[in-house]
Amino acid sequence: MTTYKASVASTREANVYQAQVRDFKIKYDLTGRRNGYEKGLDPKEALLCALGACESIVAGSFYRKQHFTYRSFYLVLNGTINGDRPGFDEIKWMLILIQMSRKKIQKSLSNLWRIPAQFVII
C-alpha cells in the first residue's frame, strides 16, 4: 500500500489557498478574477492538468512498449461545465505528436484510447 500526503492552507488573501506535496507548491485562486491578476489556478484547471498528466504518463509508457519513437508529444484539454451541477459535463482533448509516421500514430492511438479525440501530427 502507498499513502500520499498533501496539505492545503489558506493564505493572507481571501479565497486564495496554497497546496503542498513534498517540495512542490500550487496556489489555487477561487476569487473568479479574470482580469489577468490571478494568484493561482482555479481548482477545475488543476483537475484538467492532473488528468492530462496521467494520460501523458500512460501514453508515454505505451509508446515505449510499442517500440516506436517520437520527438515529443503533448495534450491540450478543454473542459466544459454548464453550471447546473458540480463537475465537468464534457472533456475534450487533442494529442499533438511530433516526428512520427501518420499511419503508425493512427494505429497506435486507436489501440490506446477508445474515446473520440482529435490528433495533430507534425
Rank of each mutant, 00 (worst) to 15 (best):
M1Y: 11
T2K: 11
T3W: 11
Y4W: 13
K5T: 11
K5P: 03
A6S: 15
S7L: 06
V8M: 05
V8F: 02
V8A: 08
V8H: 00
A9G: 08
A9C: 05
T11W: 06
T11Y: 04
R12K: 15
R12N: 12
A14L: 11
V16P: 02
Y17G: 00
Q18M: 14
Q18K: 15
Q20Y: 07
Q20I: 07
V21W: 02
V21I: 14
D23Q: 13
F24A: 10
I26M: 10
Y28I: 12
Y28P: 03
L30R: 03
T31N: 04
T31I: 00
R33I: 05
R33N: 07
R33H: 11
R34W: 06
N35C: 02
K39D: 03
K39I: 05
G40Y: 06
L41Q: 03
L41D: 00
L41P: 00
L41H: 06
P43I: 03
P43G: 04
K44I: 09
K44P: 01
E45V: 05
A46C: 03
A46Q: 01
A46F: 06
L47F: 13
L47G: 01
C49L: 14
A50M: 07
A50L: 10
L51Q: 09
L51P: 01
G52N: 01
G52R: 02
A53N: 08
A53F: 02
C54R: 01
C54A: 02
E55F: 04
E55W: 08
E55C: 02
S56I: 01
V58C: 07
A59D: 05
A59C: 11
A59H: 13
G60N: 11
S61L: 15
S61K: 14
S61Q: 14
F62V: 00
Y63H: 09
Y63N: 06
Y63A: 15
R64H: 12
Q66D: 08
T69N: 12
Y70L: 10
R71E: 14
S72I: 01
S72A: 13
L75I: 01
V76W: 01
V76L: 13
L77A: 00
L77G: 01
N78I: 04
N78A: 07
G79C: 02
G79Q: 03
N82M: 11
N82I: 10
G83A: 05
D84C: 08
D84G: 11
D84V: 09
R85L: 09
P86M: 07
G87T: 05
G87I: 00
F88S: 04
D89V: 06
D89C: 06
D89K: 12
E90Y: 11
E90I: 11
K92V: 04
W93G: 12
M94F: 00
L95G: 06
L95R: 14
L95T: 12
I96D: 02
L97K: 15
L97S: 11
I98F: 12
I98P: 02
Q99I: 10
M100K: 14
M100H: 15
S101C: 08
S101K: 15
K103E: 14
K103V: 09
I105H: 07
K107S: 12
K107C: 04
S108F: 05
L109N: 08
L109K: 08
L109Y: 13
L109D: 01
S110Y: 04
N111V: 10
W113N: 10
W113I: 07
R114W: 02
R114P: 00
P116H: 10
A117K: 15
Q118M: 05
Q118T: 12
F119A: 06
V120E: 15
I121A: 07
I122Y: 15
I122L: 15
